[in-house]
Every structure is written in C-alpha cells, then in structure tokens.
Amino acid sequence: MFRGLALGSGGFVVALIAAIGIFLLLQALPSLQANQVSFLTSGEWTTGDPNDMRFGILYLLWVTVATAAFALVLAMPVALGIALFLTQYAPRALARVFAYIIDLLAAVPSIIFGLWGLQVLGPALVPTAEWLNTNLGWFPLFSDGNVSIRGGGTIFTAGIVLAVMILPIITAITREIFERTPKDQIEGALALGATRWEVIRTTVLPFGRAGYVSGSMLGLGRALGETVALYLILSGASGRAPELSLFDGDATIASKIANDAAEFNNEISAGAYIAAGLVLFVLTFVVNALARWITTSRTGK
C-alpha cells in the first residue's frame, strides 16, 4: 500500500510535466488557428479582438534571449571567480560565512530585485548606458534601441539585474563541484611546484568544468523564465521593432504574459499568451535538460 502510494506520487510528478505541455498546447491551439499572422516569424502583438488575432513571438523571443544571454555573459565569469574564492582562496573559517552571504542573494525575492532595478539601479546606470551608446554606438549592441535609454527600461538594465539574480545559482553548483576536486590531485600539482593559480588550472578547473557549464545552463534557464523583475524593469510596449541592441526594451515572453494578465477575458486572447508560455516552457525545458545531461554524462564516466 505504502509502496503504491510512493510509486503513485512518482507517477504524479511525471504526469505533471506531460500535463503542462499538453494542456498548454490544447489551450494555445484555437488561438494559433485564429492567428492572422505567423506565430513564429511575426513580432506583432494585438490580441484584444478574438476575431482579429495577430500575434507573433519574434520580438518577445529576442528580448527574452538577449536579456538572458547578456545576464549569463556577465554572471558566468563572476560566479566562477566567487566559486574559486570560496573553495580555494577564502580562509576556511570564513568560507562558510562568505558562502552564506552569497546564498542570501538567492533568498531575496525577484520582485525586490525588480523594484530595485526599476527605481535604484536603472537610474544609476543611465550615465553608463548613455556613455556606451555615445562612444561605442558603432557597435551594434550599443546602438540606439527601440526605447529611451534615459528611461532605464532596457535589456541593458534588465540583464544586469538578472545577472545578480542568477549569480548565486551558478555559484552554488560550481562551488559544490569545485569542493569535490580530489585532494590528491591538488597535492600532486602542489608537489610539482605549482602556484595556487596553477593548481587551480591543472586540477580544479578541468575537474569542475562540466559542473560549471551545467550550473551556468541552470542559471540561463532561470534567467529565461524570470518574470516579475523584468515585468517591473522593462518599459512595456514600445510599438517599434527591436534594433537588436542592448538598449531595446519592450518585454520578454514572461514579462509580457504578466503584464497583460488582466487581458485574459476570453479564451482566444488568453490562448495567445499561453502559446507564448508554451514557447518559454519548451525553451527552458531544453536548456535544463541540457544542463542535466551534461552533469549525468560526466558523472556516468
């Protein structure tokens, strides 16, 4: 009986994931059929009138991927540094306290990061953003975007906040793997007369690389799905196509859904957002599955 119960719960969880995919698809299909434009290649988004649905994922997808990728580029090296600091450099008595401080970052709810990004960090970043835009504007990522830089509601601000948010995730996993670097490897390198940094390069980094990559993927998954921080920071509909710059604004898939939740008054309109949610689900599914695959294929050896 007890065994059945436990097995049933396991089955329930498996069924849940399948159900998420299936039900989202079921709810999205009628809207996709009613869609007047191509869902995958259009950037338009007008869903108010069930008889004239025009919605495409393209612009949202760009902002989603760009924000998450920018966050990842910022967070990965820093997280690596922190993980090394905590496992290889910090005095052991302090390492636990330091690690706890980094974990505290993960305990702060995303809405608070969002609020901080909107009201504090965003305005503080405007001079930097303007400088980049003025002096390095020839570089496509720093060229003019589709929203005002002065407003702060750009991929640039959002990416930095997201980077802070995923930092503890990447750090935690990387740290855990670095800690497991076999001691005899480290001693072997030391006995060859390696400096601390060389010990890290010859033993810790090769040993922990897979864990680091997989932790980064989990961070990426988290960044892709982050909703409320971006809902607060990004400046909402600009109506203009993105310029493929870090100073684009508008919305990510998730923040768009949160933004327009009040619009869910008929099933066809809601279905458009559910279709967008399905894309997000698939995206995070792939990224997370990849992360797990990296870990298991590595430990399987």
Partner: peptide, 11 residues
C-alpha cells in the same frame, strides 16, 4: 523532478 525545478513560475 529536475525539469519541474526549472519550470518558470509564469509557465
């Protein structure tokens, strides 16, 4: 369970 951990709250 791993995948469920990664499902965004909005999804």
């Amino acid at each position: 369970v791993d995948i469920l951990t990664g499902v965004p709250s909005i999804v």
